[in-house]
Computed example of a mutant assay.
Amino acid sequence: MKTLVVYFSQTGKTKAVAERIAQLSSADLIEIKTHRSYQMSYRKTVFTSLKEILLKERPKLDMEIPDISAYDRILIGSPKMEYSL
């Protein structure tokens, strides 16, 4: 079974986990890279993300999207987002 691990990491924690999963499962690894950096404070990142969701904006990618048709399984990792209103 051919596996792809796709991840987006703001602080490096998701990256470390994705790399370990890929290593243990002999999977290919792809990092989602955006044109605009999300290297900002947690609170500002949450605000920016919520704004993008509400406005149905999608960040521009700074990467090529791989052909996923060759994979039997795709694992996706992203930062945990918590917020309260």
Rank of each mutant, 00 (worst) to 15 (best):
T34Y: 08
I53N: 06
K44R: 11
I32T: 02
K51E: 14
Y42N: 05
K44C: 02
L29Y: 11
A22R: 04
S26P: 08
L24G: 04
S49H: 05
T45A: 08
Y42H: 09
E52A: 10
T48D: 12
M40K: 15
L55T: 14
L29E: 10
K51G: 07
L24F: 08
T48P: 02
I30W: 04
L50F: 06
L24R: 13
E52Q: 13
M40A: 15
Q39I: 12
L24N: 11
E57V: 01
I32M: 05
Q23R: 12
E31L: 02
S41R: 08
S49N: 11
E31I: 01
I32K: 02
T34K: 05
L29P: 08
A22Q: 04
Y42K: 07
L29T: 10
K44F: 04
K51C: 07
Q39R: 13
E31M: 00
A22T: 05
A22N: 04
I32N: 02
E31N: 00
R36C: 08
R36D: 15
K33I: 09
T34C: 09
I30T: 03
R36G: 03
F47R: 02
R36H: 14
K56M: 11
S49A: 15
T45S: 05
I21Y: 05
Y38E: 04
S41V: 07
Q23P: 02
E57S: 03
F47E: 06
L55D: 14
R43Q: 10
A22W: 03
S25R: 12
S25Q: 13
K44A: 10
K56I: 07
M40S: 14
S49M: 12
L50T: 02
D28W: 06
T34H: 06
T34V: 06
K51V: 08
T34I: 04
E31D: 07
S37I: 07
L50A: 06
L24T: 08
T45D: 00
R36P: 01
I32Y: 03
L50R: 11
R36K: 14
R43T: 06
I21G: 01
M40D: 15
Q39M: 13
L55M: 12
A22K: 02
S41F: 08
L24A: 11
S37W: 10
S37Q: 12
I32R: 01
Y42V: 02
R36Q: 15
E57C: 01
